[in-house]
Protein backbone atom coordinates (compact mmCIF):
# COMPACT_ATOMS: atom_id res chain seq x y z
CA UNK A 1 0.00 0.00 0.00
CA UNK A 2 1.60 3.26 -1.16
CA UNK A 3 -0.15 6.52 -0.40
CA UNK A 4 0.61 9.86 -2.05
CA UNK A 5 -0.32 12.78 0.19
CA UNK A 6 -0.34 16.46 -0.66
CA UNK A 7 -1.44 19.74 0.88
CA UNK A 8 -1.30 23.03 -1.03
CA UNK A 9 -3.65 25.05 1.17
CA UNK A 10 -0.86 26.99 2.91
CA UNK A 11 2.01 29.02 1.40
CA UNK A 12 4.26 26.12 2.40
CA UNK A 13 2.84 23.25 0.30
CA UNK A 14 3.81 19.75 1.36
CA UNK A 15 3.82 16.28 -0.12
CA UNK A 16 4.72 12.80 1.00
CA UNK A 17 4.84 9.16 0.00
CA UNK A 18 3.71 6.91 2.81
CA UNK A 19 4.08 3.13 2.80
CA UNK A 20 2.85 0.45 5.19
CA UNK A 21 5.91 0.96 7.38
CA UNK A 22 5.80 4.73 7.47
CA UNK A 23 7.08 7.68 5.50
CA UNK A 24 9.00 6.75 2.33
CA UNK A 25 9.81 10.30 1.26
CA UNK A 26 8.53 13.78 1.92
CA UNK A 27 9.09 17.27 0.59
CA UNK A 28 8.00 20.86 0.87
CA UNK A 29 7.70 23.16 -2.12
CA UNK A 30 9.11 26.16 -0.32
CA UNK A 31 7.52 29.50 0.32
CA UNK A 32 7.86 30.92 -3.19
CA UNK A 33 5.89 28.26 -4.96
CA UNK A 34 2.73 30.24 -5.80
CA UNK A 35 -0.18 28.32 -4.34
CA UNK A 36 1.14 24.87 -5.08
CA UNK A 37 1.26 25.37 -8.84
CA UNK A 38 4.43 23.29 -8.91
CA UNK A 39 3.05 20.45 -6.83
CA UNK A 40 2.89 17.93 -9.68
CA UNK A 41 6.47 18.71 -10.66
CA UNK A 42 7.56 18.10 -7.06
CA UNK A 43 5.49 14.93 -6.94
CA UNK A 44 7.26 13.66 -10.04
CA UNK A 45 10.67 14.33 -8.47
CA UNK A 46 9.60 12.72 -5.19
CA UNK A 47 8.42 9.57 -6.97
CA UNK A 48 11.60 9.42 -9.05
CA UNK A 49 13.73 9.86 -5.95
CA UNK A 50 11.85 7.09 -4.17
CA UNK A 51 12.03 4.85 -7.23
CA UNK A 52 8.24 4.48 -7.31
CA UNK A 53 6.25 4.63 -10.53
CA UNK A 54 3.08 6.74 -10.49
CA UNK A 55 1.11 3.63 -11.52
CA UNK A 56 2.20 1.95 -8.30
CA UNK A 57 0.24 4.39 -6.13
CA UNK A 58 -2.68 2.82 -4.26
CA UNK A 59 -4.32 5.88 -2.75
CA UNK A 60 -4.17 9.68 -2.68
CA UNK A 61 -4.81 11.78 0.42
CA UNK A 62 -5.28 15.52 -0.05
CA UNK A 63 -5.53 18.43 2.37
CA UNK A 64 -8.90 20.11 1.72
CA UNK A 65 -8.10 23.30 3.63
CA UNK A 66 -8.86 25.71 5.06
CA UNK A 67 -6.27 28.00 3.51
CA UNK A 68 -5.70 29.77 0.21
CA UNK A 69 -8.63 29.14 -2.14
CA UNK A 70 -6.49 28.71 -5.25
CA UNK A 71 -4.04 26.45 -3.46
CA UNK A 72 -6.83 24.25 -2.10
CA UNK A 73 -8.24 23.87 -5.60
CA UNK A 74 -4.89 23.01 -7.19
CA UNK A 75 -4.32 20.32 -4.55
CA UNK A 76 -7.76 18.78 -4.90
CA UNK A 77 -7.76 18.98 -8.71
CA UNK A 78 -4.36 17.30 -8.78
CA UNK A 79 -5.47 14.58 -6.35
CA UNK A 80 -8.72 13.90 -8.19
CA UNK A 81 -6.97 13.85 -11.58
CA UNK A 82 -4.49 11.26 -10.33
CA UNK A 83 -7.28 9.25 -8.73
CA UNK A 84 -9.41 9.39 -11.88
CA UNK A 85 -6.63 8.27 -14.21
CA UNK A 86 -5.29 5.57 -11.89
CA UNK A 87 -8.74 4.44 -10.69
CA UNK A 88 -7.60 4.59 -7.07
CA UNK A 89 -9.38 6.11 -4.05
CA UNK A 90 -8.85 9.78 -3.11
CA UNK A 91 -9.45 10.82 0.48
CA UNK A 92 -9.74 14.24 2.05
CA UNK A 93 -8.06 15.34 5.26
CA UNK A 94 -8.22 18.64 7.16
CA UNK A 95 -5.25 20.94 6.75
CA UNK A 96 -5.88 22.31 10.26
CA UNK A 97 -5.95 18.82 11.76
CA UNK A 98 -2.67 17.91 10.06
CA UNK A 99 -1.15 21.09 11.47
CA UNK A 100 -2.57 20.15 14.88
CA UNK A 101 -0.61 16.89 14.86
CA UNK A 102 2.60 18.90 14.47
CA UNK A 103 1.62 21.18 17.31
CA UNK A 104 0.85 18.10 19.40
CA UNK A 105 4.54 17.18 19.38
CA UNK A 106 5.36 20.67 20.69
CA UNK A 107 3.13 20.30 23.75
CA UNK A 108 4.77 20.68 27.17
CA UNK A 109 2.16 18.62 28.97
CA UNK A 110 -0.52 16.19 27.89
CA UNK A 111 -3.34 18.49 28.97
CA UNK A 112 -2.08 21.34 26.79
CA UNK A 113 -4.50 21.93 23.88
CA UNK A 114 -3.35 22.59 20.32
CA UNK A 115 -4.48 25.43 18.07
CA UNK A 116 -3.47 25.24 14.42
CA UNK A 117 -3.69 28.77 12.96
CA UNK A 118 -3.49 29.57 9.23
CA UNK A 119 -3.19 33.09 7.83
CA UNK A 120 -6.51 33.77 6.09
CA UNK A 121 -5.49 37.23 4.79
CA UNK A 122 -7.62 40.33 5.39
CA UNK A 123 -6.60 40.31 9.03
CA UNK A 124 -8.28 37.01 9.69
CA UNK A 125 -7.02 33.56 10.57
CA UNK A 126 -8.44 30.09 10.05
CA UNK A 127 -8.13 28.26 13.36
CA UNK A 128 -9.47 25.43 15.49
CA UNK A 129 -8.65 24.03 18.93
CA UNK A 130 -8.14 20.35 19.68
CA UNK A 131 -7.34 18.10 22.60
CA UNK A 132 -4.80 15.43 21.65
CA UNK A 133 -5.82 11.89 22.47
CA UNK A 134 -2.98 9.60 21.48
CA UNK A 135 -1.38 8.83 18.12
CA UNK A 136 -3.14 10.79 15.40
CA UNK A 137 -6.30 11.22 17.45
CA UNK A 138 -7.83 14.64 18.03
CA UNK A 139 -10.86 15.81 19.93
CA UNK A 140 -12.37 19.02 18.57
CA UNK A 141 -12.73 21.71 21.25
CA UNK A 142 -13.38 24.67 18.91
CA UNK A 143 -14.53 23.92 15.38
CA UNK A 144 -12.57 25.28 12.39
CA UNK A 145 -13.61 28.85 11.57
CA UNK A 146 -12.36 32.17 10.24
CA UNK A 147 -11.41 34.35 13.23
CA UNK A 148 -10.49 37.88 13.96
CA UNK A 149 -7.07 37.36 15.65
CA UNK A 150 -8.09 39.37 18.74
CA UNK A 151 -11.21 37.27 19.20
CA UNK A 152 -9.16 34.12 18.81
CA UNK A 153 -6.68 35.26 21.48
CA UNK A 154 -9.58 35.80 23.89
CA UNK A 155 -11.06 32.39 23.02
CA UNK A 156 -7.70 30.69 23.55
CA UNK A 157 -7.38 32.35 26.97
CA UNK A 158 -10.52 30.50 27.94
CA UNK A 159 -8.93 27.17 27.01
CA UNK A 160 -5.44 27.66 28.45
CA UNK A 161 -2.91 26.21 28.19
CA UNK A 162 -2.85 26.16 24.39
CA UNK A 163 0.06 25.83 21.99
CA UNK A 164 -0.36 27.37 18.53
CA UNK A 165 1.25 26.32 15.26
CA UNK A 166 1.10 27.63 11.71
CA UNK A 167 1.83 30.85 9.85
CA UNK A 168 -1.31 32.48 11.25
CA UNK A 169 -0.02 32.16 14.82
CA UNK A 170 2.17 35.23 14.23
CA UNK A 171 -0.98 37.31 13.73
CA UNK A 172 -2.54 36.37 17.07
CA UNK A 173 -1.80 38.96 19.78
CA UNK A 174 -0.10 37.70 22.96
CA UNK A 175 -2.49 35.97 25.34
CA UNK A 176 -1.75 34.74 28.82
CA UNK A 177 -2.78 31.15 28.27
CA UNK A 178 -1.40 30.55 24.82
CA UNK A 179 2.05 30.28 23.34
CA UNK A 180 3.46 29.67 19.93
CA UNK A 181 5.33 26.50 18.93
CA UNK A 182 8.91 27.25 17.98
CA UNK A 183 9.16 28.00 14.24
CA UNK A 184 10.39 24.92 12.42
CA UNK A 185 9.15 21.52 11.33
CA UNK A 186 6.32 21.36 13.89
CA UNK A 187 5.02 24.69 12.67
CA UNK A 188 4.18 23.72 9.09
CA UNK A 189 1.78 21.28 7.50
CA UNK A 190 3.35 17.87 7.05
CA UNK A 191 1.66 15.81 4.35
CA UNK A 192 2.27 12.53 6.18
CA UNK A 193 0.10 13.90 8.99
CA UNK A 194 -2.83 14.01 6.56
CA UNK A 195 -2.44 10.27 6.19
CA UNK A 196 -2.20 9.87 9.97
CA UNK A 197 -5.48 11.75 10.32
CA UNK A 198 -7.22 9.57 7.73
CA UNK A 199 -5.99 6.42 9.50
CA UNK A 200 -7.02 7.64 12.95
CA UNK A 201 -10.17 9.58 12.23
CA UNK A 202 -11.38 8.34 8.86
CA UNK A 203 -11.32 10.26 5.60
CA UNK A 204 -13.15 13.52 4.95
CA UNK A 205 -15.01 14.09 1.69
CA UNK A 206 -12.76 15.46 -1.05
CA UNK A 207 -14.44 18.86 -0.95
CA UNK A 208 -12.80 22.22 -0.27
CA UNK A 209 -13.08 23.64 3.26
CA UNK A 210 -13.16 27.28 2.20
CA UNK A 211 -14.74 28.49 5.48
CA UNK A 212 -15.51 31.73 3.67
CA UNK A 213 -17.96 32.66 0.92
CA UNK A 214 -16.82 34.31 -2.31
CA UNK A 215 -16.82 38.13 -1.87
CA UNK A 216 -19.55 38.54 -4.47
CA UNK A 217 -21.79 36.15 -2.55
CA UNK A 218 -20.99 37.87 0.76
CA UNK A 219 -21.94 41.25 -0.80
CA UNK A 220 -25.08 39.86 -2.38
CA UNK A 221 -26.29 38.41 0.92
CA UNK A 222 -25.53 41.69 2.70
CA UNK A 223 -27.55 43.63 0.13
CA UNK A 224 -30.40 41.15 0.58
CA UNK A 225 -30.29 41.60 4.36
CA UNK A 226 -30.21 45.39 4.01
CA UNK A 227 -33.12 45.30 1.58
CA UNK A 228 -35.09 43.10 3.97
CA UNK A 229 -34.36 45.49 6.85
CA UNK A 230 -35.69 48.60 5.10
Amino acid sequence: MTTFALDTATPDPALALVGPDGIIAEAWLGRTSGGGRRVLESAHHLLAMAGISVDALDEVVVGVGPGGFTGIRIGIATALGLGQALAIPVHGASTLEALALGAAVARRSSDELVAPVIDARRRQVFAAVYAVEGEGHLHEVLAPAAWDPDDLARALDGHAPVVMAGDGADLVPPCSGCRRAAPGPLDRVRAADLVARVRAGGPLPVAPEYLRLPDAEENRLRREREAAAT
Binding site: G35, L40, T70, R73, A77, T78, G81, L82
Partner: peptide
Protein backbone atom coordinates in the same frame (compact mmCIF):
# COMPACT_ATOMS: atom_id res chain seq x y z
CA UNK B 1 -6.67 32.47 -13.68
CA UNK B 2 -8.44 30.63 -10.84
CA UNK B 3 -10.71 28.91 -13.35
CA UNK B 4 -7.85 28.02 -15.72
CA UNK B 5 -5.80 26.55 -12.88
CA UNK B 6 -8.51 23.97 -12.10
CA UNK B 7 -8.47 22.68 -15.67
CA UNK B 8 -4.69 22.79 -15.95
CA UNK B 9 -4.12 20.96 -12.63
CA UNK B 10 -6.71 18.35 -13.62
CA UNK B 11 -5.29 17.82 -17.12
CA UNK B 12 -1.70 17.65 -15.88
CA UNK B 13 -2.60 15.05 -13.23
CA UNK B 14 -4.62 12.97 -15.70
CA UNK B 15 -1.85 13.07 -18.30
CA UNK B 16 0.84 12.34 -15.73
CA UNK B 17 -0.95 9.36 -14.23
Amino acid sequence: IGALLVGVATAKALAYA
